[in-house]
Design a protein around this nucleic acid. Structure first.
Lengths: 195, 195
DNA sequence: GTTTGATTTGAACAAGTGTTCAGTTAGGGT
DNA sequence: ACCCTAACTGAACACTTGTTCAAATCAAAC
């Protein structure tokens, strides 16, 4: 046996990333073997190394891609407006965007410790970049006296932590719809930062 | 070689749990081997099995102990009072208690997926128990019209997520003291739930 | 129809996994 | 001084780990 029927890098490549994303999210990077990933792809473990240099790079690639796409999507989503409006946009965007890709989100903050130092630094920088965008909104709101926030950095971290919480328990078809959850959270965020 | 000088179960037992807690927190349950733990304890891997039936039980024991102690400490800490005062007590307790044992906290919510189903159910029940205590405070506040919280369950989850966030970035000797962080968070929580 | 290059297999590698246990030594009571 | 048992070693078990690579087979271009 060797090359199999219908084999194509444009099929196997994405399949590999999807399988890795799914398995890493469910069982964790360290607990998933290359052979498990290969089985999910429908291939032998050796074949995976046509697509990745090693397991670590696979993890990094998933996290890097996720963070890059997050920042691009955010920048494409935001419209100008008063700080209060921008904050509302942020909350809505964050909750929806993260709810739509729970696996990538889960990996991006659960597997940080499994990154090599250099890779970790890169992901960390992207994360800080995203956090800074929220802090800028808060700063603008404080400057215009729309918000009363004693420490914008802490507030940004606290708000993101709160919004991230949604991903730990939200399941499609549960008691509340995504829109209701969004409203409830926007309510708390708004009141929490208001002057 | 066999039994070593000064060997005692009252020393090795706790040492084992401390080593496991430290290593699991840093590298993750799946990434840490029994031999690594044994090396940290200063013993061969086989000796660990005088103290635990298997690796899984070690993880479960750490998590169960943490959750039990959390609930006991909480019940011992709380004093009667108006909902607003109880909420303030909760916020202070939660932030401080968790900041004092970052490793156990980290494990307790990062390693949930590495628990066997039965073990998972137990830890999950304890966690829900803790969350319910906060929700009770919120409910009481809504009933007395002190709080304006449309959905107490979601609010409880959101607030805990926000408070848990502190543990991801707080380091002793940083820009802010624990007391300042407490104040800042209490400010946001208070405003977020106020009528 | 032939050739070229892309793609996968299957076996191999050395190292590491959790766990067990017979054998050995130290601690503590008598 | 003796004995018992608590505590540990060190080797072994069967298996899994990430990764490499020659050989085999398919896809596609000519």
């Amino acid at each position: 046996m060797a090359r199999t029927q219908g084999s194509h890098s444009e099929i196997t490549g994405p399949k590999l990333r999807e399988a890795a994303r799914s398995l890493f999210a469910r069982y964790g990077y360290a607990a998933v073997s290359m052979r498990q990933i290969a089985a999910e792809v429908g291939v032998q473990a050796g074949a995976l190394y046509n697509y990745i240099p090693d397991k670590q790079s696979l993890l990094f690639d998933l996290m890097k891609t996720h963070m890059d796409e997050l920042l691009i999507a955010y920048d494409g989503h935001m419209r100008d407006g008063a700080p209060i409006d921008q904050l509302k946009q942020f909350v809505g965007f964050h909750i929806r965007y993260h709810a739509e890709r729970p696996e990538a989100v889960f990996i991006a903050y659960m597997e940080l410790r499994n990154l090599d130092p250099g890779n970790f630094a890169q992901i960390e920088a992207l994360r800080r970049n995203y956090e800074a965008r929220l802090e800028e909104i808060l700063k603008a709101g404080v400057e215009s006296s729309a918000f009363q926030v004693p420490d914008t950095r802490i507030a940004a971290m606290a708000l993101i932590a709160m919004l991230n919480g949604v991903n730990t328990w939200f399941r499609e078809g549960g008691r509340l719809s995504m829109a209701e959850i969004e409203t409830l959270h926007w309510d708390m965020v708004r009141k929490g930062v208001l002057a």
